[in-house]
Amino acid sequence: MSAHVVSMRDALYEAPGPKMRRRIRVVTIFALALIAIGIALVVRQFHITGQLDPRYWTLFTRTTTWAFLAQGFLGTFRVAFTAGAIALVLGLVLMLGRISEAAWLSTVSRLVIDFFRGVPSLLLIYFFYLVIPKYGIKMPSFWMITLPVALAASGVLAEVFRAGVNAVPKGQSEAALSLGMSDSKIMFKIVFPQALRIVIPSLVSQLVVVVKDTTVAYVVSYPDLMQNARVLISNYDALVSMYFVVAIIYIIVNFAINQFSIYLAHRRGTKIISRNDENPV
């Protein structure tokens, strides 16, 4: 199976010849050297400015530090998960409205989508944090961060879904029509399941954006990973080391999301795309 997987690079470029291979080797060595020098410079600067001093790092030996970070991580997870779920559902609804044959519904949906896509999520957060309470609506800080992040993502997801629906060959719905299936059954049984497989990569990048958007939670003082890190920083005066560790945590989380998407794409996508599983090597 894996022998048949064609990467984008294989599809776009021809196989390198001997000269090209030599050049690739030289450039690779050069690039590795540059990266090594870069890292060395950073470490040196850290050393000069005293950032490597143990007092900035010993806090990571305490369980309380990690417990507090874990608490923040849980907050981030709750916000991202809830916002992601809301955005998926709302994005689907907006997309269905957008492709509706009723002109008014399509126009309204497009306006809503463009609004949520166009407005920075921070602005939406300010709206929920500063404007809505003025009208006497009390909202826990959890929703003040979750709703705007969800709304901002829903606009993008609606467009991602729509791109997927448009990418499903017209023959699929024509075949379903010719069987006498209703429009809604065609959408939910034939078109959307295929559209979903097509857009999984874009969907996942958008979920990564959701995770990153949650970091503005400090605006509404919701205890997410970023907010808790800020508390620890002011307690221990360990700015660089703390942000360094937190950055790594975010990278790991988003890397995990990406890996999950690759797993999903392989589990469900290759079934349709690959014609080669019939004759394994």
Partner: peptide, 30 residues
Amino acid sequence: RAEIGMVFQSFNLFAHKTILDNVTMGPIEV
């Protein structure tokens, strides 16, 4: 339409369904 069968040049089998599910789709859903 349910009473008129149609076969297309490009087959148009439902790509995400098994062969069996392709054939049972119409009877079950319609």
